[in-house]
Each structure stands twice: as structure tokens, then as C-alpha cells.
Nucleic acid binder design. Structure first.
Lengths: 252, 252
DNA sequence: CCCACTCGGCTTGCATCCATTTTTCGGCGA
DNA sequence: TCGCCGAAAAATGGATGCAAGCCGAGTGGG
């Protein structure tokens, strides 16, 4: 066994996983997103290994993956450092997500064979409506269902390339929809944003159903801007920002 | 030492590299793109290790990277298999590249501070003009300069997110500009395509210089379709297709 | 007093070794 | 002849040992 004494089960989540590398991946990613390392800091394998409780081999595989995810970047003489993000990166990421999700909505409209394929998408929206305006309790469920809605649109687009590009982009947390947690009932404008967002979902379904590809693209593209609005609300409050997943990585 | 007897230096290129993993990466990627493995085939580490002449450790890292590149995909019970590509994947990839390069051109126009930043882009085009219509001899230089042109547009876009998304997409060879080699003086229409492509480059520069973001986007988006036209020419000839890098991976 | 050189610790890269799981292949029975 | 079963072979996942390279501190010389 390795690290027999100081091994700590760092995270409550993923304390048990199917493989060491999966556990390491979740654990290290969570550490990075929580801001336990400062941007630019070099991540050495040995300390991580003793912290996670595995040997260096899974650590290295996990670091490799995180580098491809974009959370780390290779260091010239070897190893990896924590990547720095700027606010411009975040805004550009959201813009790019709008571009890709817009393309997905357009393709979904263009490639819809028959209306029965829309049922799962409609059901996803119905499930979201059942949750209603999210509270701090129902927020995880809301986010899950929201992701499911967009995953359904992406599925209808039937483009593996688009799916991969979006998947990779969404792995960067501040540009992803997860950043909506910043809305967590902190601001009076939040309610307004949820209403608008729900309406956009409904219009996207409608446009896809009517094969209005261009319209679906426009709405979906604008819909991504909701994340930007949500983030702009919290930008003034550094404490809230740094509590968001990935927030500590953003240079102010 | 490992694989002391049957170690063969597989490739003339990259017989010498800075690290074992870099060598392995180039070597295995070339093998895959050359079609030495059939799509869906499982890649085992040990045979690769003896073929490349390294131990299993760098092989694993290289396979991990190739999986993130999209050339391999993880197999449920472990290991990786060669990914299958369909023709639809190729067309969608080109479409997506047009979308992203269009966005890059638009951002370049919107974010151009002063005209002096355009000199490197103009020089890239001048260098391409110096080569002229490529022959089989000058084709590698032509492709390099073409890539440089688009890299310059991307640089002017000043979006790290966009750069990463495009980099990842371009690593898939058939959707990349490298697929233009199919035009290698085989078809009478090739000359026409080069003239049109050059004009599109000039119009992109012009639109960026005039801060016409929407126009730059439109032209760049359409410009990507040149790859599709080039590929469509060779689609009828299976022998030519399978000689292209990555061509053997496409299911007909 | 400052610069350069050297020595030591630390880190990564790589190879090898071990255990567990999967796959395959041959044989047996229906 | 087909299908099931079991054992051997081989695959991956993981751990560790070792050597080479980098980084920094300390020291000696100019």
C-alpha cells in the first residue's frame, strides 16, 4: 500500500470509484476547481499521490486528462501547471458555447425526421417545469434537467463532431451552464432570468418543431448569454465568485 | 532493455524526438492515419510497445492523448479502439470548421486595434502568392503557408477558447485543411478551386481591414467548403481516398 | 560585494514487475 | 453440429525502482 499513514480521503464525493484513475481525476479536478492551487502553480505528482492515496501512475494519467480538458497546461521542462483564466476567456467561452449550441439547434431543426423525436426534448422541458423556479434546495435538480434539455437538442443535431466540441468546452466550468449556480436566489433579477430562460427553451422547441433552423439558431445563441448575465451579477462580489466552481482560477 | 530483438524503427520521420512519449505519439498517430489498423480494432499496448521500441508507459500516455484527440475511443473493459469515421462525420467536421473559422474572422475584424497588426496576415498571403498554384512539388509548402494564413486570422481573433476548439478539430485530418492534398493536380477543376480560394483569402483580409465583421465571417465560413469540394472530387475513387491521411478510417 | 560555479535535493520520465480481469480457445455434452 | 463451460493466455490497471535532468543554495573567486 502507498501513503499508508497520511492518506486522507479528500472528498466526500467519489470516495469510492470504479478505478483509481477515475477517483484521482474527480479528486484532483475538484481540488483545482476549489482553488486549492493557485493559478500558475506547478502540480507535482508525489504530493498529490500521497494526498489522494494512490501511486504516481494514476496521478499522471489524470493530470494528462486534465491538461486536455484545459484545466492544466504542460510545463516546458515537464509536469503541469494550473492554467490561468482571464475574464475574457470566460466571456469568449460563453460566446463560443452560444455559437455551438446555436448550430446544434439549427441542425436539430434541419435534421428532424418526424415529430415523435421531439418527445424526449419536450419531456425534459416538462420535468424542468415541474421543478419550477429553483430554490437553493432544488438547484442541483434544476441544473441536471437543464443539462438534459441541452443534451437532447444536441442529440437531435446528430453531429458527433459538434457534440465533442461542446463537451470539451463545457468541461471548463465557468463557461458552462453550471455557472448558473451563481444565480442561487441571491439576486432579485434571478427570477426574471429564469422566466426568460424558460421561454427561450419553449421557443427553441417550437422552432425545431416547425423546422425553423435559423430561428432556432438565433434563440439558442442568445440563450447562452444567460450565463453571462448571471456571472456579471456576481462579478462585483469577489467572495461569491471565488466560491463558484472554477472561480478561483479566474484572474481579476 | 525492452523488445531488444524485434524493435523496428517504424517511421523515417520522428526517429529521433525529445522524449519517448512524443516519439510514440507521432509514430502511433502515423500508423493509425496510414490505416495500419482497421477501424474498431482494439489497440493493445504490448505489441505497440515492441513495435515502437519503448515500454508500455509512454504507450499508455500516447494512447490517452490520441483518445482525447479523437482518433481513438475508450473501450468499456479497458484499452482503446480505433475510432470509426463516417462520411457524415467528415462533412459535419468541415461545417463546424467553417463555423469556427468564420467566428475567428469576425472576431479578428471586430478586435483589430490598428492596421499594422494586419501585416503578418498580408505577408502570409504574399508568401502563398509567391508559391503560386501548387504543383506536387510545392504542395507541402503551399499547405504550410495556408495553415499559416489561417493561424494568423486566429491570432487576430485573440480568443484562446476559439483557438483551442479549432486546434482540436483540426487534429482530425479529414476535416482539416490537410485534406486539400486530394487536389494534388489530379483534377482539372483544381486550378479553379485554387483561384477561388485565393480570392477568398484576399476578401477576408479586405473585410478584416475594413472592420466588416459579418462579411469576414461569411467569407471564411464559405471558404471552409473548399475542403468539401476537394474531398467530393476524390470520393468516387476509393483508392485515392484511402491514400489520404486518415482516409482509411472513413467507412464508406 | 557580486558573480559564477558546483553540489545536493527533488522531480519527472521511463522501465519493469505484480495482480486482477478479460478474452479466447479447446473440449465436452446435449 | 451447436452451445456451454473452464482453464490457460493475455490484456489492462496499478505500483515501484532507478536514472537523468532541473532548481536552488551555498561557496569560492574575482
Amino acid at each position: 500500500m502507498v501513503g499508508e499513514s497520511e492518506t486522507v480521503s479528500f472528498s466526500n464525493v467519489a470516495s469510492e470509484a470504479d478505478s483509481q484513475i477515475a477517483r484521482t481525476l474527480l479528486c484532483v479536478r475538484e481540488m483545482i476547481l476549489k482553488g486549492e492551487f493557485s493559478p500558475g502553480e506547478r502540480l507535482s505528482e508525489a504530493p498529490l499521490a500521497s494526498r489522494v492515496g494512490v501511486s504516481r501512475t494514476p496521478i499522471r494519467l489524470a493530470l494528462e486528462r486534465l491538461a486536455h480538458e484545459g484545466l492544466l497546461e504542460p510545463y516546458p521542462t515537464g509536469g503541469f501547471i494550473v492554467r490561468k483564466f482571464t475574464l475574457n476567456d470566460v466571456w469568449d467561452g460563453i460566446e463560443l458555447r452560444g455559437l455551438l449550441e446555436g448550430a446544434a439547434a439549427r441542425l436539430a431543426a434541419e435534421r428532424l425526421a418526424d415529430d415523435s423525436q421531439l418527445t424526449t426534448l419536450r419531456n425534459a422541458q416538462l420535468d424542468m417545469d415541474a421543478v419550477g423556479e429553483p430554490t437553493s434546495e432544488t438547484f442541483p435538480a434544476y441544473l441536471d434537467l437543464n443539462d438534459r434539455f441541452h443534451a437532447e437538442v444536441l442529440r437531435l443535431a446528430k453531429s458527433e463532431m459538434l457534440k465533442q466540441a461542446l463537451d470539451r468546452l463545457l468541461s471548463l466550468p465557468l463557461a458552462s451552464r453550471q455557472a448558473l449556480v451563481s444565480l442561487q436566489s441571491r439576486f432579485p433579477e434571478a427570477s426574471e432570468i429564469f422566466v426568460v430562460g424558460r421561454d427561450q427553451h419553449l421557443r427553441i422547441i417550437e422552432a425545431i418543431a416547425r423546422r425553423q433552423g435559423g430561428r432556432a439558431e438565433s434563440i439558442a445563441r442568445e440563450h447562452a448569454q444567460i450565463t453571462r448575465r448571471a456571472l456579471e451579477f456576481v462579478m462585483s462580489r469577489a467572495d461569491v465568485l471565488s466560491s463558484l466552481p472554477g472561480g478561483p482560477l479566474v484572474q481579476v
